[in-house]
């Protein structure tokens, strides 16, 4: 699913002065940043600071009130979520979203199938769209093998969370936006989960943007962190620098 490579130095993703309000609430209030290829960018900030809204504006889920989104230097503002996904951008939502009436394996195959061949070809081709092997690999990576044939709705919250993340990787995306992937995943699994993500990042060379409240998780995973408060970026830098930034501490304690 990787189209012609961008020129070196072009950010994978760039936000230019994004705004989005809900009535009087300025959820995203002038956010600009860019993400370099291969980076793992952490996004932190207090509850209600606009992180999820930022994701929704970046991914075509919500039209921004103003501003631009660029993918490999190309303006993709206003493109639909499905079109962006087919260009190699995938995501998870903050509220977990798997398909409860499909088995775990079927969830994974669904996550990859629209990237394989033509629509008519899929109707007449193999039922699994040739993705069984890829699904097995994901099941293995996310330690879900034993659950493969269960309905996703029957899994525990943490297991569904892992499946949700695994689905985001099925199509071999270049850019993955994860909204609180660690929430609800237990501590022992969390370490393994972080290693999964790191491995994906290095093997596939894909770029991540990760919203997360779990500071240890962010600090140990991310190469760079931005902190958002009241719809604006108040800090941008190395995990260490952002953690020690007085404004960041103030934003967290002030709420």
């Amino acid at each position: 699913m990787t189209p012609a490579g961008p020129t070196p130095g072009t950010p994978v993703l760039e936000a230019r002065d994004l705004h989005r309000s809900f009535g009087g609430v300025r959820a995203v209030n002038g956010i600009s940043f860019s993400v370099a290829p291969g980076e793992i960018l952490g996004v932190i900030g207090p509850n209600g600071s606009g992180k999820s809204t930022l994701f929704n504006c970046l991914l075509g889920q919500l039209p921004p009130s103003a501003g631009q989104v660029l993918l490999d230097g190309e303006d993709v503002t206003g493109m639909t979520p499905a079109a962006l996904n087919r260009r190699g951008v995938s995501r998870t939502f903050q509220l977990l979203q798997v398909f409860p009436q499909l088995s775990v394996r079927e969830n994974l195959i669904l996550a990859g199938q629209e990237h394989v061949g033509s629509r008519l070809g899929r109707l007449f081709g193999r039922p699994d769209a040739g993705l069984t092997a890829a699904a097995e690999r994901m099941l293995h990576l996310f330690r879900l093998e034993a659950l493969a044939d269960l309905l996703a709705g029957g899994l525990s919250y943490g297991q569904q969370k892992l499946l949700d993340a695994a689905m985001a990787f099925m199509a071999g995306p270049r850019l993955v936006l994860l909204d609180e992937p660690a929430g609800g995943v237990n501590l022992t699994l969390l370490g393994a989960f972080r290693e999964r993500l790191r491995a994906m990042n290095q093997e596939a060379g894909s770029t991540f943007v990760v919203i997360e409240h779990n500071m240890d998780f962010v600090m140990s995973l991310c190469t760079r962190v931005i902190c958002i408060a009241e719809g604006q970026i108040i800090a941008d830098g190395s995990p260490q620098a952002v953690r020690e930034n007085p404004q960041v501490i103030e934003a967290y304690l002030g709420h």
Partner: peptide, 24 residues
């Protein structure tokens, strides 16, 4: 049984998530 059937179910269960996975 084909991917179409899977896409139909995805439509019923969660069209927003389906779209984010590239389902038209």
């Amino acid at each position: 049984r084909s991917p179409w059937g899977r896409a139909f179910i995805a439509l019923r269960e969660n069209p927003i998530r389906a779209a984010s996975l590239g389902v038209d």
